[in-house]
């Protein structure tokens, strides 16, 4: 008997009772979406900035390897999307368009359509996500309502920079992925 048949047969042999799948109610969210979102991003060790602050960030650090995929920021790009993600290893800044943000936790939804290459938001040294203010939703229930049956091959909530606390519970930003997250809210 194959593993599949074995497992399914064993489950089938277990007597079962009917347990209804509950409906998930809409929970109210008391805070202003923008205020809550900004607080969430800060708590996750990210930053919410303006477009001009983004330009300053790039200028001050003299970044040269910048890849932009966000609408209206094309001029900041210094390189095109390669075909192999390994070539992004030296990338300093990736700028991506986010689809929507979640006020309760700062999570931002991205899919293949925004990423170009799935490795992009992870391999880059600094990550910038551009987000429209009107796209903010209250909580994760509303977020999944918004996603609906979107058929993208890969979808992702990013809520902050790569972080770890595996050494004595001391928080360190920049474990493997992006060392910073900046959100341009416009």
């Amino acid at each position: 008997m194959s593993g599949r048949e074995n497992i399914l047969a064993k489950i089938k042999a277990i007597p079962r009772e009917s347990r209804l799948l509950p409906e998930i109610p809409a929970f109210e969210f008391p805070m202003d979406h923008k205020v809550a979102f900004m607080l969430s991003i800060q708590a996750n060790k990210g930053e919410v900035i303006t477009e001009s602050e983004l330009k300053d960030f790039i200028a001050i650090n003299r970044f040269e390897k910048i890849l932009n995929l966000a609408k209206g920021m094309e001029s900041l790009s210094t390189q095109p999307l390669p075909s192999d993600a390994h070539e992004l290893n030296e990338l300093e800044v990736a700028i991506i368009q986010g689809q929507f943000g979640v006020a309760e936790n700062g999570a931002i939804w991205l899919t293949d359509e925004n990423l170009g290459l799935r490795a992009l938001p992870f391999i880059t040294e600094h990550l910038v996500i551009v987000l429209e203010e009107k796209s903010l939703v209250s909580n994760m229930h509303e977020a999944y309502q918004r996603i609906g049956d979107q058929p993208s091959g890969f979808g992702l909530f990013i809520a902050g920079p790569s972080k770890t606390a595996d050494i004595e519970q001391s928080l360190v930003i920049g474990a493997h992925g992006a060392k910073s997250l900046r959100v341009v809210l416009r």
Binding site: M140, G155, I158
Partner: peptide
Amino acid sequence: QPITNYNSH
């Protein structure tokens, strides 16, 4: 924390 920083689908 309110959510893990990366939640990949």
